[in-house]
Design a protein around this nucleic acid. Structure first.
Length: 706
DNA sequence: TATCCTCGAGTTCC
DNA sequence: CTCGAGGATA
């Protein structure tokens, strides 16, 4: 041990070695503390080890280990939980509401895999527990981390709290060296009513439903409180693993049970969509007597190799779906309709309701979507509620779409007052009085005031500081609005001059409500840190219509630097020429996005605002992804004919993941043609052009060689 | 031109 | 979470 070496005297390799031994020592100490009741080090020694680890990490930030003890057990929850990045993303599921949706799910999978309707294909079906998902990381069989789902990429570190849940094993035997087990934390109905009566006795607030109780209990900063909350856990999935658990979903679940996890007893395997639907109905019959909340049934392709082939869409896997129970409905009275103005000027109507309980939550607002929705029309002008428009004073039926967003399902015409008037949708912006116009092809009416409109300006500022944009600690939506109202920051650039414009900016901030001296200092420090920003984030933060997070990152990757991007977009300003063509040629950028971007850069007011902002920033060039160790990286491929082992869509996704570009037709730029049976004109053209042609088996060999 | 998928922009409550 | 629209594709 180098315990006494001055940190400044450590060489890099010494520091690295010590971090490693500290990590191991701290993990062992944690384990002893939490599983056996015999701590192997004193609290003081433990704190010393941790402190030493932290000091070395501070001196050598580049050496900080992925499994750093600072991020794990006992991390000081100074202000909230520390964040943990999931080794593999935690996904959400697509939804099915009808039996047809389920059979369609089955057909979609068969199509994607190139399987006929008769080919054998097994699915698992299990109840969808209404709780919160949790990811547990075991190394050498020892529970070392527990993280909530968060946004799927990054969750909250609730390890200490997970230790207090009886259903969660602290130690596994015969488990893979690294194993992440995922499942649902929930509270039973009995425990929920019990907890609420105890809360009443203690004069503390009660929870609206078991789900909220479970969430509130898991997210306690003091694990001793969590310990006294009756939380339970069902395991149903996994993340990173050093070795596979089994070859099938059902096998893996079985293995989790053997490892000591609680799995749901209603988990079954079925080979037809009808089998799944029958099991769904059986679970629905048992729903009221299960003793815990469920909101549907989850179906998963059983074969894990097939799951891997099916892969993921942007946020959901193709191989699983949640068959939801019908939403709970409630009748209430519509007291009024308010109009909100969004960042792009969109006027959106919100229903003000007489408060009513729906699905365990009191709802007093609901979205009315747009003008047509109130009139009872769908996007194509057809009726959505059969001649039932919505009027103030009406009795309306409310549900929570996806158990979250309150919406209006129906109107009781029989109870409508005879003199109830149709809602008159405003044609002027209620915030700034500018004309509110609706384009022919558009479902929304928009305020034409642009940046003149305070509502739009505030929403723009909120967007600018939002999580995917500048994400400034201590400057959220609320503060952004307050700063705007006070005239402190009315456009993004002013955030970066706050401190200098007020000679005593810190002092002024400290003097106002809700701002301690510490939080003011922290805010200014956070602003300083954000002067350096990635190009993609910067572009997204500008809030240009049609240019969202994905498009911003595409543009950043294409142009590389802000300088290049600005010059090219300026040159594309005439909507023709090589810069314009280049912009439109980016995969994922079409004419509408391109025009919106170019126009935004040309608007004098908007452009000046962008230029003022840029002057305060250091915009980082985008990294270009290099997938150099793939044989098809950077090549242009074309698929033709019938592929027998995988679908076209799957082949394309695989090729793109390896860094190839997939084109639709053969040209002189084509590097490789993959031709299945029935490849006609494309194969001939390839031969004429001398393009290399291989069959599907060659292709599989080529990509499997990795 | 129709169809699929993904993205953007809107939304609630705790 | 959902709707509508943009973009890619057949």
């Amino acid at each position: 041990m180098h315990k006494n070496t001055n940190i400044s005297d450590l060489s890099i390799s010494e520091a690295e070695a010590e971090l490693k031994s500290l990590s191991s020592a701290l993990n062992k100490a944690n384990h002893a503390y939490h599983t056996a009741d015999t701590p192997i080090v004193s609290d003081a020694e433990y704190d010393q080890l941790k402190q030493r680890n932290l000091s070395i990490e501070t001196a050598f930030p580049e050496l900080k280990r992925a499994d750093s003890p600072s991020d794990q057990v006992g991390a000081p929850p100074a202000d909230g939980f520390s964040k943990l990045r999931h080794a593999r993303r935690m996904l959400s599921l697509g939804n099915a509401f009808t039996n047809e949706d389920v059979t369609e799910f089955d057909l979609r999978i068969r199509r994607y895999l190139g399987l006929g309707e008769q080919a054998a294909l097994a699915y698992t079906a299990e109840p969808k527990i209404d709780g919160l998902s949790l990811s547990l990381r075991y190394e050498q069989g020892i529970l070392i981390q527990a993280a909530t789902r968060g946004d799927g990429q990054t969750g909250e570190n609730v390890t200490e709290n997970a230790y207090t849940i009886a259903d969660i094993p602290k130690q596994l035997s015969n488990a893979p060296e690294i194993l992440e087990v995922r499942g649902e934390v929930y509270m039973s109905h009995l425990d929920f009513t019990d907890l609420n009566s105890r809360q009443i006795v203690r004069g503390e607030k009660t929870f609206a439903n078991p789900r909220n109780a479970a969430a509130g209990s898991l997210r306690q900063l003091n694990p001793d409180i969590t310990r006294n909350r009756p939380l339970k856990f069902f395991a149903y999935a996994w993340g990173e693993m050093s070795a596979p658990l089994a070859a099938t979903q059902s096998g893996a679940i079985h293995r989790l049970k053997e490892l000591g996890f609680v799995i749901n007893p209603l988990t079954q395997t079925h080979t037809t969509p009808q089998g799944l639907i029958d099991h769904y109905q059986e679970i629905e019959r048992q729903r009221a007597t299960l003793g815990y909340d469920i909101d549907g049934v989850v179906y998963k392709v059983d074969d894990l190799d097939l799951q891997a082939r099916l892969g993921l869409r942007s946020t959901t896997p193709r191989w699983a779906i949640a068959h939801k129970f019908p939403a709970e409905l409630a009748w209430t009275r519509l007291e009024g309709i308010d109009i909100q103005v969004g960042r792009t000027g969109a006027l959106s109507p919100v229903a003000r309701l007489q408060p009513v309980t729906v699905g365990g939550v009191v709802v007093s607002n609901a979205t009315l979507h747009n003008e047509d929705y109130i009139a009872g029309l769908n996007a194509t002008g057809g009726p959505i509620r059969e001649g039932k428009d919505i009027r103030i004073g009406d009795w309306v039926q409310v549900y929570r779409a996806g158990d979250v967003i309150p919406k209006i399902a129906d109107v009781a015409l029989s109870k409508r007052a005879p003199d109830a008037k149709r809602f008159c949708y405003p044609t002027r912006c209620p915030e700034c009085g500018s004309a509110a116009l609706r384009e022919e092809s558009d479902a929304v009416r928009r305020c034409s005031g642009g940046i003149i409109c305070p509502a739009q300006a505030i929403e723009k500022m909120k967007h600018f500081v939002s999580r995917s944009a500048f994400d400034i600690d201590g400057l959220g939506a609320k503060q952004a609005e307050q700063f705007y109202q006070d005239g402190w920051a009315r456009e993004p650039s002013e955030i970066f001059t706050l401190r200098t414009r007020f000679s005593d900016g810190v002092q002024q901030l400290k003097n106002r409500d809700g701002w301690g001296g510490k939080s003011a200092d922290k805010l200014f420090q956070a602003i300083e840190e954000r002067r350096t920003i990635a190009l993609g984030r910067f572009l997204f933060a500008l809030g240009i219509r049609h240019v969202g997070e994905a498009a911003s990152n595409l543009l950043a990757a294409h142009y590389g630097t802000w300088e290049t991007l600005r010059q090219e977009i300026d040159q594309a300003g005439h909507l023709e020429g090589s810069a314009w063509d280049d912009l439109n040629a980016i995969d994922g950028i079409g004419a509408v996005m391109a025009k919106s971007l170019v126009t935004a850069f040309q608007q004098p007011l908007e452009r000046a605002s962008i230029d003022r902002l840029v002057a305060h920033l250091d915009i980082q060039a985008a990294e270009r992804p290099q997938i150099s160790d793939s044989p098809v990286a950077g090549k242009t491929l074309v698929f033709s004919g019938t592929l027998e082992k995988m679908s076209r869509a799957e082949a394309k996704a695989r090729a793109e993941a390896l860094g190839a570009k997939v084109a639709g037709s053969v040209s002189a730029k084509t590097d490789l043609l993959i031709a299945g049976p029935g490849a006609g004109s494309k194969a001939k053209k390839a031969a004429d052009l001398g393009v290399e042609t291989i069959d599907e088996d060659d292709w599989l060999t080529l990509i499997k060689a990795l």
